[in-house]
């Protein structure tokens, strides 16, 4: 019911928009879900993906340490297993072992007060 004064949120709470500054990626644990959810903000747009690199079956965690999901230049999400790079806006792998595959995109809803909910 978008546009309604009282938004009905059915997703799972991830974070507050203020938790993820522009140019930053962070991982958030969602109870009952094994991979974390990566939230990344770039040029004002918020994107969310499962923290599960498609290179190995089942998907494996991508950061090298807590919240370290970006490459050195901050232009791409990186898998710190074998260096795959993924587009921030689409999740598509553009370099490395899973070339042509994509991260699992998570739709998010942001409430008027800035809470970010994942459609999972």
């Amino acid at each position: 019911m978008s546009g309604a004064a009282q938004q009905v949120i059915t997703g799972r709470y991830l974070c507050h928009i203020g938790d993820v500054a522009d140019g930053i990626a962070r991982g958030f644990a969602v109870s009952g879900l094994r991979p974390k959810v990566i939230v990344v903000r770039k040029n004002g747009h918020l994107h969310a993906y499962l923290d599960a690199c498609p290179h190995y079956t089942g998907g494996t965690p991508m950061a090298w340490k807590s919240d370290a999901y970006l490459n050195g230049a901050g232009t791409h999400l990186a898998c710190h297993s074998h260096g795959a790079l993924f587009e921030l806006a689409t999740g598509e792998c553009v370099l490395g072992p899973c070339l042509g595959q994509s991260l699992t995109k998570i739709d998010v809803t942001i409430t008027a007060t800035g809470e970010v909910f994942a459609a999972i």
């Binding site: 965690p61 950061a63 090298w64 370290a68 710190h80 297993s81 074998h82 260096g83």
Partner: peptide, 9 residues
Amino acid sequence: YFNSPLGCH
């Protein structure tokens, strides 16, 4: 095994 910023485990 651990992830790393050197592009390998």
